[in-house]
Amino acid sequence: MVHEITDADFEKETEKGLVVIDFWAPWCGPCKMQSPVIEELSEEDKDIKFCKLNVDDNQATASKFGIMSIPTLLVKKDGKVVDQIVGYHPKEQLQKLLAEYAA
């Protein structure tokens, strides 16, 4: 399950454990390609929390993290940013990357 988050609840929703935040917008073509990959990963790996943040509606958080291109995936572990991935990435590539942080 992918959680929709906002500027208001970003910190609370991403402060514990391993969290992947998908910064996206409805008009973004590559975001539309990335979204089903994120959905699949969220169903397969229950130890990782997956969130989506619409950058059009939540500009403060996007600005705080310097999100200049979308899709951007921000990976947080116990509240600290450990990685930032820009652009579309296939499922296998994301699985490999996330396995390193889950260990």
Rank of each mutant, 00 (worst) to 15 (best):
D47C: 09
K96T: 09
F50Y: 07
V55M: 01
E43W: 02
M1Q: 11
A8F: 06
V2F: 12
I5Q: 09
P30I: 01
D47W: 05
I67F: 03
A60D: 11
D47V: 13
D83W: 03
F10C: 00
E11S: 06
P71L: 14
E44T: 08
V2M: 11
I21P: 02
C51K: 05
K52E: 11
A103P: 09
Y101D: 06
P30A: 10
V19N: 12
D22W: 10
S69Y: 04
I67S: 05
V19R: 03
V2Y: 08
E13R: 10
V82Q: 07
K52H: 07
S35G: 12
A102T: 13
L98A: 12
Y88G: 03
M1P: 08
E4Q: 15
I70W: 02
M1H: 12
L97K: 12
A62M: 01
E40H: 06
F10M: 03
K46V: 08
P90L: 15
P90N: 15
D57C: 15
T72M: 13
S69M: 05
E4M: 12
I38A: 00
E92M: 10
A25Q: 00
V86I: 13
I38W: 02
T72F: 05
G17H: 02
S42R: 05
I67R: 00
E39G: 02
Q95M: 11
A102W: 09
W24V: 04
L74Y: 10
W27I: 00
T14I: 08
I38S: 00
I5K: 11
V86G: 05
A8Q: 08
V20M: 02
K80V: 13
A60L: 12
Y101M: 07
K16Y: 08
T61A: 04
L74K: 09
P30C: 07
D7V: 09
E44F: 07
K76G: 11
I70A: 04
P26W: 09
L97T: 13
D47G: 06
L94Y: 14
Q34P: 04
E11K: 09
L18K: 01
D57S: 15
P90D: 15
E100Q: 13
W27Y: 01
D22C: 04
E44Y: 03
D56N: 07
V20K: 01
S35A: 13
D9E: 07
D78N: 15
G66W: 00
S69A: 06
G66C: 00
E39N: 06
D22I: 04
A99N: 09
A103G: 14
E43A: 09
T61Y: 01
E40S: 13
P30M: 01
Q95L: 12
Q84H: 02
E100V: 12
L18T: 02
K76Y: 00
Q93W: 10
V37C: 04
Y101H: 14
I48S: 01
A8E: 15
F23Q: 08
L18E: 06
V37D: 05
D78K: 15
D83C: 07
F65N: 09
D78F: 07
T72D: 06
K12G: 11
W24Q: 05
M68Q: 06
N54P: 02
A102G: 15
T6H: 10
K64R: 14
Y88C: 07
D22L: 04
D9W: 13
E11W: 05
H3L: 14
E13C: 12
T61E: 05
N58M: 09
K76I: 03
V75D: 01
K16S: 11
E43N: 08
T6Q: 11
M1E: 11
F50M: 01
